[in-house]
């Protein structure tokens, strides 16, 4: 089996157990890439994941970066496709099924029953981010301003992200 196919299959397997996204499969990703296949060492794995976290965009892109590290552009393409395709195809069919069932009386309430889980997990990821990001009074001030700004206004959150970065450069 070629390396590229192995990369595709490894990430496609991860994709199907990745309920909750990249952070949820981090331990399994580490086991497959570092322990089972020996494609990279611990330090490289941690560094690549941290880099993907610091950059904007879905955290799942850590997979792309790792594919790139293993086998260049081909590895990047295989890891990205492997990670995204199975989940996207499943989402496509589920969307079709809910469309066909749209008249069913139980459908809307059933969907609404999942909403608090999604919202609660967004809150939890905010708290997890806050733990890592608050290292002193200034970071707490930035966090608090951003919280109130996004909570109470409809202005673009870009303002507080840029402001937070600028305050960081000026004072941290």
């Amino acid at each position: 089996m070629t390396l590229l196919l192995q990369i595709f299959l490894a990430f496609a397997t991860l994709s199907l157990v990745a309920v909750g996204g990249a952070t949820a499969v981090l331990p399994e990703m580490h086991r497959l890439l570092v322990v089972v296949h020996g494609w990279m060492d611990d330090a490289t794995f941690t560094q690549l994941f941290a880099l993907a976290q610091a950059a904007p965009g879905p955290n799942i892109l850590a997979a792309s970066l790792m594919g790139w590290n293993i086998a260049g552009i081909g590895g990047l393409a295989m890891a990205t496709l492997g990670m995204l395709m199975p989940a996207a195809i499943l989402a496509w069919y589920v969307a079709g099924a809910t469309h066909r069932l749209r008249g069913a009386r139980w459908l809307k309430p059933a969907q609404f029953g999942l909403v608090p889980i999604a919202v609660g997990l967004i809150g939890a990821s905010g708290i997890t981010l806050a733990r890592a990001a608050t290292t002193g009074w200034l970071t707490w001030v930035i966090l608090a301003i951003s919280f109130v700004f996004v909570w109470r206004t409809k202005y673009s959150p870009l303002w507080v992200l840029a402001g937070g970065g600028a305050l960081g450069v000026a004072l941290l």
């Binding site: 990821s125 990001a133 951003s146 109130v148 996004v150 992200l161």
Partner: peptide
């Protein structure tokens, strides 16, 4: 830090 506040909000 700002992103954490944004996500919680």
């Amino acid at each position: 830090a700002a992103a954490a506040g944004m996500v919680i909000a």
